[in-house]
Amino acid sequence: MLSFIQSTVGKKYLMGLSGLIWAGFIFGHMAGNMLILVSPDAYNVYGHAIVSNKILLYGTEIALVGALVAHVICAIFLTKQNRESRGHRYAMNPNGQKAASFASEWMAIHGSVILVFIILHLVTFKYGPHYETTVDGVVMRDLAKLIIEVFSQPMAVLWYLVALVLLGFHLTHGVRSIFQSFGLLHPAYQPIIRRAGAIYAVVVAGGFISQPVFVFLTRAVAA
């Protein structure tokens, strides 16, 4: 078991597994947040329902923090090992058909940006200003108000756009590679897997991007 984790192949399984947890979570996160496009109240009620269910909330948080820590630690070890394995750098990198894709070549870089983004994102929203509102007689956190406040600033929207596009690239390569790392690649469905990563990335990143853009256009510009 220990030698499995120490091996390059084992670390890749761990990367894939922890990545899979996050890839699954962000789909739900994106889909749920789409309610901001419906109405601030709908969004607040949805958010309140989540934080009221302590088992779901803490269970998810523990799984996510655990997966993130494992993912980052493995990534640090692997990146360090991979740099050492390369040794002397090339004067010229592969190009044309023999080159690695942008997404796969820069996983560590967009991964690092995404990590910073996650921390700042939590500071901004989860641990941000606490407004309150009452919907149908229930007092709850008015997260929608904070969202509108934040995404009325063009720079905040721009930063989210950059981070989410990078997340898209990270997912394109990540989701596809899970199949490879887990040993689930098979000639018959290799082309489908190749596309699945890209489609998943476009759906998740596209869905997320629509939210700050919608808020900015409807609230800040209209106001």
Binding site: T8, K11, N82, A99, A100, S104, H186
Partner: peptide, 24 residues
């Protein structure tokens, strides 16, 4: 040797077109 990031550069450069399916 380093870990596999499944970039596919290996298979693209392989003179014998060895498939990534083998790594899986």
């Amino acid at each position: 040797f380093g870990a596999c990031t499944s970039t596919g550069s290996c298979s693209a450069s392989c003179p014998k077109d060895i498939s990534l399916v083998n790594i899986a």
